[in-house]
Design a protein around this nucleic acid. Structure first.
Lengths: 341, 341
DNA sequence: TTGTAGGCGTTATCAG
DNA sequence: CTGATAACGCCTACAA
């Protein structure tokens, strides 16, 4: 009894007293050409035996799978897990199976993943994650994905604008611009920006958008502090800003929320009260932005939507469409209006 | 050029001028019996053609896959995404592919997923998520998984104690007990508990653990408020507590952190300052517990570790082992020591 | 060390 | 409508 192998179509056919071909047609056949009596016998046999079609066998017989492969940087990061949620939701609606691989922020790993992913012969490959640029893997990645597409696969990039594939991006530049304008309107003029190294495209775009609006308004050039793209990075940047002194800074823009939240904690630990002694704004509008005190001003990014859109693009006909999702400013207590000096 | 199909082993063999069998051996052969010159020619041909072995074909030829299937309630929930992170990390270390399905809190969906999952013939099925109990699907689920195991599959449950499979759980009862004792030691005696409906096992265990320690100490019976297992649930419960009046409550225990955080926000909105007017404690110790103000007292649960452990169990020989991960109390500012009355 | 041949579980083609 | 039979891409005795 132990280790009996799963029932095959063969077993079902025998149990139902029909040929294996008929059983196949009754269970997963495209054509409706099976006598209903036989069909129900087959179904009954399948149910009795607990038969489930071997997906790999189907894949190889049909020449195509029902798999979508998702590459993300880190599942535990709310940014990516929200995207993943959108992707799986859309995939399951389309009866597709999602396989997931984690790149851990390493472009080499990402490349390696995409390579082995092709072995799965997925219908779709979705690569999410503000890829680190500049490292030589970029061209290899493109090439690998291009070959995959030539072989009939669909590829969609999320938040990675300039590769020759369908892309869904977020309006990072515009969102940051609008944020800056909103802060200027609220009376802030002197800023610090906590940003990640320039290889991280998302950070660069947000930084650039913010700067362009500040400059356009003729406000002083913001203080730029480079740090990690993480909570710890924001925490550290805030500490450095406090040490340096921040008489010339009325508000801080951290290029993402987790950085902003880390910064708030660091400020508070240093006796600087966010929202009173210094304004703080982030980007992404993650769930906890409203639970932090003071509630964090941010730019809402429709992450789950990005995942859904990616699947929509993948399933559509267009071979290289691009969608840019809006990013909306949400002002909260961390940047209260500032009385004109 | 468009839509050329991916190269097969056949193509590689032809390109290298050897038989398909030799090519197979050179690329993925178990035995080392290929002349090195031929081997390198095959590898060169494979590289030139961009060949990747068709995993489905391998699966059907070898009779087994390198897939682990993960069923979780919600990817976007930090609780589950942390578990998923652990699972994928361990899986990738073992060269296994992770496929993910989302059950959305519905036992029916969970059952359906497990059923179709068997079609993948995964090596391992991991089901994570405090399953809702009482609904009739429980036995069907068990049966389905048992059949799968009979067919040679491995199954591991995460935080689902009483099914006849390998299980990794968290010491919810003990952790809640220790939390209660810590709060009692800090001078709190009158509590409210925000808990989810009893079908949610995790909530029930934590609630029970808390109660048992409170009772053992001879403190008054806590006020129990039933609500959703989510941030919104906690928010709502806090509002109801405030409306009802809370003269008889010195501290609130919410059975998870997101509930506790939602509750803190609701308290604050009602003019009740958490940590001063009322103590608040949660469970899980999610990342944002330290970024909230006041920092949240909680019970640390090693979620990622749970995922790692699940994979370890799956890959081990033992057929039905159980591991219970410790849960440690972390006291923070949301429950400051209370001067003896 | 190599090649030939058979098989893995399905689907698809093509006669009956 | 049904049943042989040939694929699908790969692995693995078995024989050379």
């Amino acid at each position: 009894m132990a280790h009996s192998s799963p029932p095959t179509l063969h077993d079902v056919a025998r149990e139902a007293g029909v040929s294996i071909a008929t059983a196949s047609r009754a269970l997963n056949g495209s054509a409706r050409n099976v006598r209903s009596e036989n069909a129900s016998r087959v179904r009954a046999a399948a149910a009795k035996l607990g038969y489930e079609p071997h997906l790999s066998a189907q894949a190889i017989a049909k020449g195509s799978t029902r798999t979508v492969a998702l590459v993300i940087r880190d599942v535990a990061d709310p940014y990516f897990s929200s995207i993943a949620a959108g992707v799986t939701q859309a995939a399951e609606a389309a009866q597709l199976i999602v396989t997931m691989a984690v790149a851990d922020g390493s472009p080499e790993r990402e490349l390696e993943i995409v390579r082995t992913l092709r072995g799965q012969r997925p219908r779709v490959i979705i690569v999410a994650g503000s890829r680190i640029e500049g490292t030589g893997t970029r061209d290899s990645l493109t090439e690998e994905l291009a070959e995959y597409r030539t072989a009939g696969g669909r590829v969609v990039m999320i938040s990675q604008r300039d590769l020759p594939f369908s892309t869904v991006t977020v309006d990072n530049h515009g969102g940051a611009e609008r944020l800056a304008r909103a802060l200027l309107d609220a009376g802030y003029r002197r800023f610090a920006v906590f940003h990640a190294p320039a290889e991280i495209r998302t950070s660069r775009d947000r930084h650039a958008g913010f700067l362009s609006a500040v400059r356009a308004a003729g406000a002083p050039e913001p203080v730029a502090i480079e740090t990690g793209f993480t909570r710890a990075g924001g925490h550290d940047a805030a500490r450095r800003l406090v040490e340096r002194g921040f008489d010339d800074v009325e508000a801080v823009f951290a290029v993402n929320d987790v950085m902003a939240i880390g910064a708030m904690t660091a400020f508070r630990d240093a006796g600087v009260v966010p929202g009173r002694d210094i304004g703080v704004a982030g980007f992404d509008d993650i769930g906890s932005a409203v639970d932090v005190v003071p509630a964090l001003t941010s730019v809402a990014v429709p992450l789950r939507e990005a995942g859904l859109t990616a699947m929509r693009l993948a399933l559509s006909d267009e071979d290289s469409a691009s969608v840019c999702l809006p990013a909306d400013v949400v002002l909260r207590e961390s940047t209260p209006p500032r009385p004109p000096a």
